[in-house]
Design a protein around this nucleic acid. Sequence first.
DNA 1: TATTGTTATACTCTATAACTATA
DNA 2: TATAGTTATAGAGTATAACAATA
Lengths: 155, 155
Amino acid sequence: METPGTSEPGGATVEPLSRGPLEKLLVYHLRRVQSAAFQHFAAYLNHRDITPGQLGLLVLIACNPGVSQSVLAREIKVERSTLGEFIDRFESRQLVERRQVATDRRIHAIHLSSKGRRFLDQVLPEVEAHEREFTGTLSAQDQRTLIRLLKRLAG
Amino acid sequence: METPGTSEPGGATVEPLSRGPLEKLLVYHLRRVQSAAFQHFAAYLNHRDITPGQLGLLVLIACNPGVSQSVLAREIKVERSTLGEFIDRFESRQLVERRQVATDRRIHAIHLSSKGRRFLDQVLPEVEAHEREFTGTLSAQDQRTLIRLLKRLAG
DNA sequence: TATTGTTATACTCTATAACTATA
DNA sequence: TATAGTTATAGAGTATAACAATA
């Protein structure tokens, strides 16, 4: 590649590594930050046994009581079978409930349980604390800019 | 949550869904964009059977010939056992080689094979095309800003 | 003792395909 | 026919723990 890493006589390569064309790739930086954010989140919410993806889904369920699995799957862009697995795991932890709907018996209406409610009430402040710490190096202005640009890319 | 989604009499919830406190969480937007980027990448490089993470690792190997598995693992922040699996898969596709190092017989020096070289030469332009399309809605200025902010967060 | 790498095990995330029940 | 959900299967990504070889 254009700028090879330092090589020693024996053929070993020393740190820091050269990143060549990766430096200019947005996807690369996106992946790194996402990975760093994930690990910071995991360390901070160690005792809660939840990932950023699971938390996002749980909040969607909390904000949209009775939503169906298909609607949730479309919202987070995964297959229905994948979404079903997430709900299975939440249900086995008794965080959410599947309820029958009288008007359409194909549908499972998903609701947060009271245990799920308490869980979220405890976890959300911790997530916000993690967020403040993780984004601490950016000014409030920069944080807003970053979210604005990310929204445009996701939209 | 503060702004529940629209509910119909039967208890069903209609799209679009309310996102409540997620809207302000950087981690949430990061995950969404990362997921969108991943899916765009996968669709664009459909025939290549490679993910953004694998591509990143392959470029690191290309740029740092002879690098050890431990150094690579530290660089991308995964466990040695995880990194070993990535190398296993690359090796079974004959994209990289593990070579012995005379000066330290514990180490496997990782090198791109000539097949790996050709693979990267074909794939990198496609990745850049994907990137241009994916980031097309952002101005050149916005793209630079975004990368700058992401770099600060990852560092 | 510390480091490099491998193996075994396990869990999450994810998709595809085939299926049942219902609309 | 089309939609909602489940099940079976499979593979990627990831970690932990225990291990062998080497430094």
